[in-house]
């Protein structure tokens, strides 16, 4: 056999080997967490709350807190992010403004979350007097996810076909009616993808929420506006950290890890489904 073909074969073997090693590594990580966590999971664990007197463990409060933080941060970041993206791509004439925004968004999307944790704690919790609450945590996260939502929305707006614009403007449509009836509907999938990415970051975030949203594992009261604003507590990833690092309760930590893996997988398949729709249109 030709030495060049041997080299070719060896190089291909190397590629397969690397991919195999990476897959094995990642599979082992997820598999191990699931293997340790699954036996700890039970309906009572998912739907109960922790009680030291009653000797029960449960993560329902953290599940609820996670959902609340996702909902509130998206409710803030979505209108601002999408509105800003529409203005920057469709209206803005000032190039400095547009490029400044793109530059800042690019820089801030790479900034470590621990820095947002400090900002959130200093600005929202202290300066604005929100204390450590789910609200303060959500607001900090909405700032953290703003660059993501802004960029994905801008990309999908730019991808809207020129023919829609020409067609609508040629009929005497004003700019905003054109955007509302054609450009935004055509960009919906991209916007949804941005939201899913943002939700994924919220689910995975710990550092920010530790310092801005609190560590309580007790069920919060969302029955009135006032008590909801004061609600403070751990989301799932914060709870995992508390179980693992502060209480050394690895059983509970792995159970939470398993729940987080499922949540991540769900968010991923949602994003993939939206992605498929984008490609089909």
């Amino acid at each position: 056999m030709n030495p060049r073909h041997i080299r070719d074969f060896a190089a291909k073997a190397l590629l397969w080997l690397s991919a195999g090693a990476v897959s094995a590594l990642l599979l082992a990580l997820a598999g191990y967490a699931g293997f340790r966590g699954a036996p700890e999971l039970s309906w009572r664990f998912l739907t109960g709350q922790e009680s030291i007197l009653g000797g029960t463990a449960g993560i329902l409060p953290s599940v609820v807190n996670t959902l609340v933080v996702i909902a509130v941060s998206l409710a803030v970041v979505l209108p601002v992010g999408v509105g800003a993206a529409v203005y920057l791509t469709e209206y803005a004439r000032n190039r400095l403004f547009v490029e400044g925004a793109a530059f800042a968004a690019g820089v801030l999307s790479g900034v470590p979350s621990i820095l947002y944790a400090m900002i959130g704690a200093l600005v929202f919790c202290d300066k604005l007097g929100l204390q450590k609450t789910l609200l303060a945590g959500s607001l900090t996260l909405s700032i953290m996810t703003l660059p993501t939502v802004l960029r994905t929305t801008q990309e999908s707006l730019k991808a809207a076909p020129l023919s829609y614009r020409e067609g609508a403007l040629g009929l005497g449509a004003g700019k905003w009616p054109m955007i509302r009836t054609l450009i935004l509907p055509a960009s919906v999938d991209g916007i949804v993808t941005g939201c899913i990415l943002a939700a994924g970051r919220v689910v995975g975030e710990t550092a920010v929420l530790m310092y801005t949203a609190g560590l309580s594992m007790v069920m919060q009261d969302f029955s009135s506006l006032q008590s909801a604003l004061d609600a403070s507590g751990a989301t799932l990833s914060t709870a995992l950290y508390v179980y693992a690092k502060e209480r050394a309760d690895f059983g509970a930590a792995f159970a939470v890890a398993t729940v987080l893996l499922f949540l991540t997988a769900a968010i991923n398949s949602l994003a993939a489904a939206v992605g498929r729709r984008v490609r089909r249109v």
Partner: peptide, 19 residues
């Protein structure tokens, strides 16, 4: 301009219907 374009309609090189 929108009012102008309403009075002066246009048909483009490629059909550009909306979805």
């Amino acid at each position: 301009v929108a009012a102008l374009r309403r009075r002066i309609g246009m048909v483009f090189q490629k059909p550009n219907l909306f979805p």
